[in-house]
Write a protein that binds this DNA or RNA. Structure first.
Lengths: 162, 162
DNA sequence: TATTGTTATACTCTATAACTATA
DNA sequence: TATAGTTATAGAGTATAACAATA
């Protein structure tokens, strides 16, 4: 480890040292599960699609695109590949045949179940190395940050002032 | 917010609700700064390269590749684009002219400074909406998790057992 | 005409394989 | 020959623009 800038403490918040590095490590630990399945590993984007469809079965491509903040053609191609992999089913919606309903296949459901198990395993391996106090602090802090971050972002005013 | 499975509490750790969602939100909040600069926004990968070179000036392409866990050609192209953007300088190392030393240009340094300011702004906007207790818990918990996750991952044994 | 989804095209990131330059 | 870096090529993710099908 080299220097530790921690240029955050001059503001109201306490020092969050190297938040970028922390996030990177968390990302890596979380994504680690994705590559360790026996089935062909899906990309991060494909995995996100799977989770969304699992949570909202029958969702159409436009809505999925909004969930992903992705453009329509990207969504089409993502689903093309998941369909080719046998994880996803497309069926036109009877009431309005312009729309396409998306559902996971049995194979897709199985894949998600295995991934979830693997990720919990990875997460618990890490958390079990923390003290109970630290575990509790993590849950409390992340939950609060999650709430704070989820708010609609109060008018990002554009000025560098530097 | 939809349901909250919290299928984690059956183990030693307390419930970390929807860790994937939490990470996603954090990622989004953190990356949000990247797109709001007046200068042309760099990609996530390019930004990572900038941070690494800033921390290790004169680093060569092989070492950079190891830091990124990326293959050599990917690193070459990343640096091609950063150089074309004027953020990066390549110079052959005198002692061994096979190697290339990488350094940020003044323009590159300025870009990183602006990005850092923007990200702190975004982060503080979020953290200022948290109670002091929650802020403290977040720092404590994340630091501990960071330490735990950074450990060499004790033998991932491959068996789905599901 | 408006909406849903697709195809066409292009750029970035990623990788493997083959190549150049230097040692 | 071994190492550092590049070029060639390919696949995935992203985007905008143009198009087809449906309403």
């Amino acid at each position: 480890m080299r220097k530790a800038p921690t240029s955050l403490h001059q503001h109201a918040s306490p020092a969050l040292p190297e938040i970028g590095l922390v996030l990177e490590l968390l990302e890596i630990a979380w994504e680690r599960g994705r590559g360790t399945l026996n089935t062909a590993p899906l990309s991060t984007a494909q995995t996100r699609v799977m989770y969304i469809i699992e949570r909202e079965p029958g969702i159409n491509l436009s809505t999925l695109g909004r969930r992903l903040s992705a453009a329509a053609p990207s969504v089409t191609r993502l689903c093309d590949r998941l369909q080719a992999a046998g994880y996803l089913r497309r069926t036109p919606r009877p009431e309005d045949r312009r729309e396409t309903q998306l559902e996971l296949t049995d194979s897709g459901v199985a894949h998600l179940r295995k991934l979830r198990l693997r990720r919990e395993q990875v997460l618990h391996q890490a958390m079990n190395r923390m003290t109970p106090d630290a575990q509790h602090a993590l849950v409390t802090g992340l939950s609060a940050l999650c709430d704070a971050v989820a708010e609609p972002a109060p008018t990002i005013d554009r000025e560098e002032s530097a």
